[in-house]
């Protein structure tokens, strides 16, 4: 066991944990926007998948990390718009339509991957520059903390900035108030002049962009390739994290770090060669999700109008 407690092991464990939390953190942050505005976006998984796929194609052919990120964000946003239209315009049940659209994203990406690349022996690589970490000049020289937090991938710094911005948006801006009111009591909000439909569309677009970026990190920046169902239900783990983090940016940020570290921990245990079957280690993140859901569900209160459809006509007709 002593190998697990050395300084080097712990530092590399936590650094890897931070790195592995990025593809959960960004979608979870986006999901806060969607759920706070009242849409239960089960389709998060599909938006990540679309982002991962589009960015991989663009990254593979252009080699540019910026273009890949843009493509991932755009693809995630388009998928989110589809979900938003189905929920807002066509007033379908959020959970059901989300499941169907997840299936669509899975089929769509796996179909077009085979169309574009065919069946190959060596899987094609994304090959963009920018997969490596970018240390922050001064801060990365701090002994332990610098190695863990400030020698990360640049998307992590963006994520930190987004967490702070989101916190500000929700607590201090009119737009944040609009989103929250749309998710708590849409009828009252509309009476006060908030356009519920537009607010929900905008929230979903933000969510799609962030989910797409999460997917981009997985395929282009982290794995450097695309495989079928590359997200492996990280979208659903992100959904659980939003509940665990009580729909607030900062708690969601820290819970993502916790889950990322758990993921890194089980990978490290596999490589250290402890006598634990690796199947049981692979199970850990999912087990943790169930435990966390059991422990926190009772105390965290979801937005009151979450998962309901707002019917504008009903306001005047009845």
């Amino acid at each position: 066991m002593s190998v697990l407690l050395t300084r080097d092991f712990l530092v590399s464990l936590f650094a890897a944990g931070v790195r592995m939390s990025i593809p959960i953190m960004l979608p979870a942050l986006g999901e806060i926007y969607a759920e706070r505005s009242g849409i239960l976006n089960i389709n998060l998984e599909g938006q990540m998948l679309m982002g991962a796929f589009a960015s991989f194609i663009v990254g593979h052919y252009s080699g540019s990390v910026v273009l890949a990120l843009l493509a991932g964000a755009l693809a995630g946003m388009l998928q989110a718009l589809l979900m938003a239209t189905a929920c807002i315009q066509w007033k379908t049940q959020h959970v059901v339509i989300g499941i169907v659209l997840n299936m669509f994203a899975l089929g769509f990406t796996s179909f077009w991957y085979r169309v574009v690349f065919g069946v190959t022996i060596a899987p094609p690589m994304a090959n963009v520059s920018g997969g490596v970490s970018t240390p922050v000049p001064l801060l990365s020289n701090i002994p332990v903390l610098g190695e863990i937090l400030f020698s990360q991938h640049f998307l992590f710094y963006i994520a930190i900035a987004l967490v702070i911005v989101s916190r500000f948006v929700f607590n201090r801006t009119f737009f944040g108030l609009k989103i929250r009111s749309a998710g708590e009591y849409p009828l009252a909000a509309e009476t006060m002049g908030v356009n519920i439909c537009r607010t929900r569309y905008l929230s979903m677009m933000i969510c799609g962009v962030l989910a797409g970026l999460g997917g981009t990190f997985l395929s282009v920046l982290s794995l450097n390739r695309f495989v079928d169902n590359i997200t492996a239900s990280r979208g659903f783990i992100a959904l659980a994290i939003v509940i665990f983090g009580r729909w607030k940016p900062l708690p969601v940020f820290f819970s993502s770090l916790l889950f990322g570290t758990m993921d890194a921990f089980q990978l490290r245990l596999q490589s250290v060669g402890l006598n634990v079957p690796y199947h049981l280690l692979l199970m850990l993140p999912y087990l943790l999700t169930v435990l966390v859901m059991i422990m926190t569900s009772k105390n965290s209160k979801s937005p009151a109008a979450l998962g309901t459809n707002y019917n504008r006509e009903a306001m005047t007709d009845t």
Binding site: I42, V95, I99, S233, F236, I243, Y286, L287, T289, M293
Partner: peptide, 9 residues
């Protein structure tokens, strides 16, 4: 809790 998330886990 959401039975969907639990079931998938």
């Amino acid at each position: 809790t959401s039975e969907v998330i639990i079931a998938i886990m």
